[in-house]
Simulated assay, not measured.
Amino acid sequence: MTRTRILGVGLLLAAVVPLAACGSSTNPLTPATSAASESSTGGASSTSVTVGSADFPEAALLGEVYAQALEAKGITVKRQFNIGSRETYLKAITGGEIDVIAEYTGSLLNYLDKSASVSKPDEVYAALQKAVPQGLTVLDKSAAEDKNSLAVTKETATAWSLKAIPDLAAHQSELTIAAPPEFKTRQQGLVGLKSVYNITPAEFRPLQSQATVDALKNGQVKAANIFSTDPSIAANGFVVLEDPKSLFGSDNVVPLVRQEKADSVKAALNAVSAKLDTPALADMVKQVVVDKKDANVVAKAWLTSAGLL
């Protein structure tokens, strides 16, 4: 969760920055591929921060929520959205190209500490606070959660008698899974499916965004990694398989920030976290992805309704 998310491509998406090679000195945020803009809420501000996002609609939407909440406090904000996957945007925040980004507690913890075994929200958050690299910190987590999941069609669930992920074990020879490319090498992916459930699919198809949903809907794959706030689940009647051993764990939305900027942004961003819950997040994502509303309009409406503007 990665986390790259499997959501319909909306007007949010800009050019995706290529994944930076390990050890590369290339700046992942180049002028040619970034989607930066600056704004402020009238008058000069002594504080300026750059808000980034991963390359899927929910991430950019959350980036806009953070940006507007900060601007409401008189902070000058530069937007650097649709950077890429976690592998890329973590290079950006540790390198100082961005200062703030919305993250997901369980996915980030699992990325930073492959041996982490906690799954309950507060335990995951406490472990994450200890695991973040020097120079970074996480602020208050929100109640809003968007988890990794494996989804199948109703037809496949009926034909294979599927209710939970372990039920896939009896059909490995026929199992084809669609997911973002990173799913192949992550614990919250094929690695974990093997180590936790002893499941290895016959084929893995690396697909992004709407292509993953379409592949599942059209029967090209038997299962897909789709995230829990994705409106395509309800729209297509997909069945999300239960995860009894908590491979995917809890994944609360949380601001990841550079330590040097934490004092400046924590009041505004902690206020966002205090108000943001899963239904509100899912509704905003639907408005952006399905209803094709502009993310800045959706973010402003929610912040206003939450009393944060």
Rank of each mutant, 00 (worst) to 15 (best):
L281D: 11
L216M: 13
K275Q: 12
D214P: 02
E260L: 03
D294Q: 09
S228N: 03
L308Q: 11
A295F: 07
M284C: 10
D243K: 03
K266N: 13
L281V: 11
L269P: 04
V290C: 05
K217E: 12
S246M: 04
V298R: 09
T304R: 04
T229Q: 10
K293W: 04
G237D: 05
S273G: 00
L247K: 03
T200G: 10
D283V: 05
K222F: 00
F204Y: 10
D251E: 14
F204N: 01
T278R: 11
A295Q: 12
S305L: 03
S246G: 00
V288K: 09
A280I: 09
A306G: 03
T304P: 00
A224C: 08
P231F: 12
S209M: 13
A262I: 07
L309T: 13
A299E: 07
E242S: 13
L256T: 01
V257G: 02
Q210F: 12
E260S: 14
K292Q: 14
L308C: 13
K217Y: 11
V297E: 15
L309D: 11
D214Q: 15
N236Q: 13
A268P: 11
L281W: 08
A202H: 06
A223L: 08
Q287Y: 03
E242Q: 14
A235R: 15
V265E: 06
V290G: 04
D294A: 13
L216C: 12
A223V: 09
A295C: 04
N296D: 15
M284P: 08
A282W: 06
K261M: 10
N218Q: 13
Q287E: 15
Q259N: 11
K300L: 07
V288M: 05
Q208T: 10
S246I: 00
V288D: 06
D243V: 02
D230C: 14
T304K: 14
A274F: 08
V221K: 11
K292W: 01
V253D: 00
A282F: 04
L216Q: 13
K292P: 00
L247V: 03
P244T: 07
E203G: 00
V253E: 01
L309H: 10
V253R: 00
V265S: 10
L281N: 09
A295S: 15
